[in-house]
């Protein structure tokens, strides 16, 4: 547990929760990245701009943070190219099929005490942990 960072995890988590509160309280929307992306891919009238702005804000946030704090953002990608392609594809496919991902189901759905979201969150936590276990401790490739 040498890499455990409880304080930044707590602050970051509270901010993520706050962001979900802002979107629901003001706009009545669930802060789910998969759902918001899905609406960009199949746009409805008067329903596109906010989605694009939300996703763009996600991308801009770390740039503003890095500038304000004069810090660089740590991004260590350990996956090989095939792992990134296959993993990314499965993330998109699975999240779409499950109608949401870590944000929509994990953060917002659990907050709404949704049974669907609980099932999804428990399932993806189990398969992600199992996947890493197989890759690192059985296959040993640690891709």
């Amino acid at each position: 547990m040498a890499n455990f960072t409880p304080v930044s995890a707590l602050i970051g988590g509270l901010l993520i929760g706050l962001a979900a509160v802002i979107l629901l309280l003001f706009n009545g929307r669930i802060m789910g990245v998969t759902g918001i992306t899905g609406g960009v891919m199949q746009p409805q009238r008067h329903d596109l701009l906010w989605r694009v702005l939300f996703l763009a804000s996600l991308a801009v946030a770390p740039i503003l943070y890095a500038k304000a704090m004069s810090e660089s953002i740590t991004i260590e990608v350990t996956g090989s190219l095939p792992a990134l392609i296959i993993g990314g594809f499965l993330v998109g496919l699975g999240a779409c099929a499950a109608s949401g991902c870590t944000s929509g189901h994990g953060v917002c759905g659990l907050g709404r005490l949704s049974k669907r979201s609980l099932v999804v969150t428990v399932t993806f936590m189990a398969t992600s942990i199992a996947t890493v276990y197989v890759m690192r401790h059985m296959v040993g490739s640690a891709s």
């Binding site: 996956g79 792992a83 296959i86 993993g87 990314g88 594809f89 499965l90 993330v91 998109g92 496919l93 699975g94 999240a95 099929a97 499950a98 991902c101 870590t102 399932t123 993806f124 936590m125 189990a126 398969t127 992600s128 942990i129 199992a130 996947t131 890493v132 890759m135 891709s143």
Partner: peptide, 8 residues
């Protein structure tokens, strides 16, 4: 499937 992709 999503969890598998996340893990990979």
């Amino acid at each position: 499937i999503f969890g598998i992709g996340w893990g990979i």
